[in-house]
Structures are given as C-alpha cells and as structure tokens.
Amino acid sequence: MTTTVSTGQRIGRFLRDNPLIPLILLLLVLVAILEIRQPGIVNERWVGNTIKFAIPLAMLAACQTLTMYTGGIDLSASVVATIVAFVMATQVPVIGVVPGILLAMVPAVLIGLLNGFGVGICGVHPLIMTLGTGLIGTGFLQVYQRTVIASGSVVPESLQWLGTGRTFGAPNALVLFIPFAIAILFIQNRTGFGRLLYALGSNEKAARLSGVRSWQVYLALYTLSGLIAGVTGLLYVGLIKAPSLSLVEPLMLPSVAAAVIGGTSIFGGRGSYSGTIIGALILTVLGTMLTLLQMPEGGRRILFGAIILALTAIYLRITDQD
C-alpha cells in the first residue's frame, strides 16, 4: 500500500516549517516588479531609503508582535510614539536634550503600565484597553500642546542623524535597529519571559496551572511595549523632523499588518519577530509601488488595504496550520 502526497501538500508543509521563505520570495517579487516597471529604480540609494522607512515600522510592529504572542494587541503604540516625540521636541528647547528625552519617556512607561494593569489585573480585553488608553493619551497630548505653544520645538541633531543619516550608504538607524532586533529575537527564543508570552497565548489556563502568575507577565509585556513605542517615536521624529499631533498615526495599521503578514497569529501562541521584519519591508516596498502608480490618495489607500487583506489571506492559506 503506497500513500500519495500531492505536491500541493508537500509545498504547504515545507512552507509551514519554513514560514520565512514565502515572505522573502514575495519581497523579491515585489522588488522585481518595481524594477521592471521603472528600470533603474532599484539602486543602493533606494535600498537604503526603503530600509530607513521600514525600520520605524518594524519597531512599532514589535509592540504588536510581542503582544500578539499572548493573544493581545497594542493599539496605543502609535499614540505613545507620538506623545514621546512631541513631548521630547517641545521640552528639549527648555531643559536640554538628554533630560528632554528622559522626561518624554515617562508617559510611555505610564501608558504601558496602565495597559498592563488593565489587561493583566482587571482582565480588560487588550483591544479595548489599548484603544482606551490611546484615546486618553491623545487627549492629554492636546491639553499639553496648549501649554507649550510658545516654546516651539526642536528635533535634536543626534536624532536627525539617527533618523535620516547614512554612513557608507547604510542608514544610521541600523545602529539602533540591529541590536534591537537581536534583543527581541533573543527575548522570544531564549528567555523565560519570551516563552511565557507564547505560553499565555497558547493556553492561559495551562500556563497558570504551571505556576505562571499571568498578571506579572502582562504588566511587564505592556510596559515593554510602551517603551518600544516610545523609542520608535524618537527615531521616527528624527526621520520626519517635524513633530505633530498625529506623527506616528500612519504607522498604526501597517504595524499590525506587518506582524500578521509576518506570520504572527492574532490568536496567540505562534509567530516570530523575524517574520515581522520581512513584513515591514514588504509593506514599505508596497508603499513605494503605490506611490509610483500616481494614483489619487484615496485610490492608493483602497489598494493598500485590499493588498494587505489579500496577502494575509493567501499567506495563512499556504502555511495552513491544520
């Protein structure tokens, strides 16, 4: 009795075991399409620019990836990033660069702790909790803006160097991002904390049964997520150079999409930050393509949303876990 396995199943299994490969292939295909439509566009400068813009997205998407491991999400991340950027830029002219940055990180930690408190101790669903704190944060930022209207804003040279500068063609932001990515990958794969994130997302009851006090993990997780969002805000304002009340807002949905396209399950228990990084690159290249199509903004958004949905659906299908 021989058993037959269709080629389709074989491919499906291979992709399931190596989820990064289809993502990298997709990325290369997109780059190839871009080069065919506009020969010569893919050069060193373009690659550098793409990476430069993908890095803040990938960092914000780390907030989504880590919270998604537990079956959660952090919708306050973009607001936190905006607050940190805005507070930093308005405080630096008054109290100096380093104190300004440190002061700006305070609201990030506070919102993170509040998220962790709500999710871990009060049992509020992360979607509602972070949506709520995001709204509260936005409100506080508007109040704060009125009090500092006279002081003006400054984006420190150092952040501009980090956000926009290049060294030998490579974006300086990599100085921040490479250690960051290694740290996140180390946390998820090689630390007890990382294992517990997956464990909570896989089966919270089983985790508790094994002695995990889940509130501790949630509190630490959402605080970490707030910190990451804050650092992303600092980097992003160095890239954009003009703080505003909706600075990081455009990265919100893409940060969730990058994690999902990268193979992280929104139901928890599965995923990897390496997928998220590729996901962020894919979305950035996609953004460039849509810009080149010279469509009106509305049309671009429709197409962008549709492509994200299609990619996610296809990706989940070919790497089908069942």
Partner: peptide
C-alpha cells in the same frame, strides 16, 4: 519546561 520558567527570577536567559 514551562514550570521551570514561571517565576520572575527565571524570566531571564534560559
């Protein structure tokens, strides 16, 4: 391995 990692003092590097 999960019970080995449950307490905060074991959250670090495995």
């Amino acid at each position: 391995a999960i019970p080995r990692l449950a307490r905060i003092c074991n959250w670090g590097s495995i």
